[in-house]
Design a protein around this nucleic acid. Structure first.
Lengths: 229, 229
DNA sequence: TCAAAAGTGTTTAGTTTACACCCATGC
DNA sequence: GCATGGGTGTAAACTAAACACTTTTGA
């Protein structure tokens, strides 16, 4: 079966940039190792062709699940990449989506298109296929921007977390140290955290754990906000 | 001449949302009246099909020029719209771009695809073709967001302008009144404006006019900034 | 008792918000 | 001289930034 058109058409794909935090607080990105040419054996962002009757976002979620096993994530459109030379197979335009997830909550599993799936630390990236290094750079910039006006971090951390964990995450994303006193004051003043149990069994003073309070967060958003840290 | 592929492919288009300020300070958007079906005679955003060897941004600028006569503008990618039902001709995915221009600096001219080209005030919009009302809404939200962390307005106003003009623009975009004293203090403290001549011949105290100082603006950006008004 | 990380007090500088007032012009 | 917008002074409230200190635990 073939498909014929009066004018030429580019192929349309989606790619996913999924960021996760590992146990030690390092920011990682989800990559697959390609099983087919072009770029066989290279690492790449999960993604693939959009079906004819499928929403772009649905295509991204489908490919993500098929190639990596990751599902139930909130994705957000990042940018559309369409430089004519970006794919050796011909003109391929790709709509990129990104998401933040708690790495520990997702089981990885490669399928036929991918030989392997893995979380890579951002400072230990392999060479990436196509223009995926550029796409990833774009996603990192967006993440840095987003953190300034939205309470990122809750998606990345476990349900219950300490303020030090949250601060470390912000420091990782922003790439700079923050003042403990001021960070705590600011975050708590937002009133979007609820106290949870204490973190005990550590060789230092037990930490108060918090959960993200969705109700209070919604109220906070309505008032207009500023997450500048 | 026809083009045959092994798998079906969506069509790819670009659309442009061009905002301009008129003499009286109203925010307007550039629309064309379609000369062809579908949606013949309806008003729509300028746009069209992407050529096979053409960058997305180049396609947007080409279509903009062809359909409206507007050229030499900085466009920025807004979002990609791909709901399967958005175009009655079949699956059409559209990459939307937006720009801010000084309306007075651009001469309008319709071509064959458009019967007419016109600036429409945002509160007097006609029914729009396709999902262009949704695209426009998205662009307005982006504009409101952008104004908070970037010195928008300089593209929209003439080279030389008064602070009241700038304040009125911000009030228009944000949809709320701002305090004159505080607006002036904040904008001037940024140090990105240079004094120009006085605005004379008006029936009130002459106003100091300013120009946007590109050099100082670049310095300001390097330091990190906050355009929250 | 010590190391390690949690958590608090407080001062200072700077920013934001709000309101009231004066200024220069053309008609 | 008055209507019209341009432009300024200043007090009070709030935030941000910096730094030093106390607390609680396990080993």
């Amino acid at each position: 079966m073939t498909y014929t058109y009066e004018y030429p058409r580019p192929s349309l794909t989606v790619d996913c940039i999924i960021f996760g935090l590992d146990e030690t607080g390092r920011l990682k990105v989800l990559l697959i190792q390609r099983a087919k040419n072009p770029f066989k054996d290279h690492w790449a962002l999960p993604g693939g062709f959009v079906d004819m009757d499928e929403d772009l976002e649905a295509a991204a979620l489908r490919e993500l699940k098929e190639e990596t096993g990751v599902e139930n994530v909130f994705i957000e459109q990042l940018f559309t990449f369409g430089t004519p030379s970006r794919d050796p197979r011909g003109r391929v335009v790709s709509v990129a989506y990104f998401a933040l997830v708690n790495l520990a909550e997702h089981q990885l599993g490669a399928d036929t298109d991918a030989q392997d799936v893995r979380w890579y630390a951002l400072d230990e990236l392999p060479d990436l296929a196509f223009d995926h290094a550029v796409i990833l750079e774009t996603a990192i910039s967006r993440l840095r921007g987003k953190v300034r006006y939205q309470p990122i971090g809750f998606e990345l951390l476990p349900d219950s977390f300490t303020l030090t964990q949250l601060q470390t995450l912000y420091e990782t994303i922003l790439g700079k140290d923050l003042n403990k006193r001021n960070f705590r004051t600011k975050i708590l003043k937002m009133g979007i955290l609820a106290e949870d149990k204490m973190l005990r069994g550590v060789a230092h003073r037990p930490a108060q754990m918090y959960r993200f309070d969705q109700q209070k967060y919604d109220d906070y958003l309505k008032k207009g906000f500023n997450f500048e840290i």
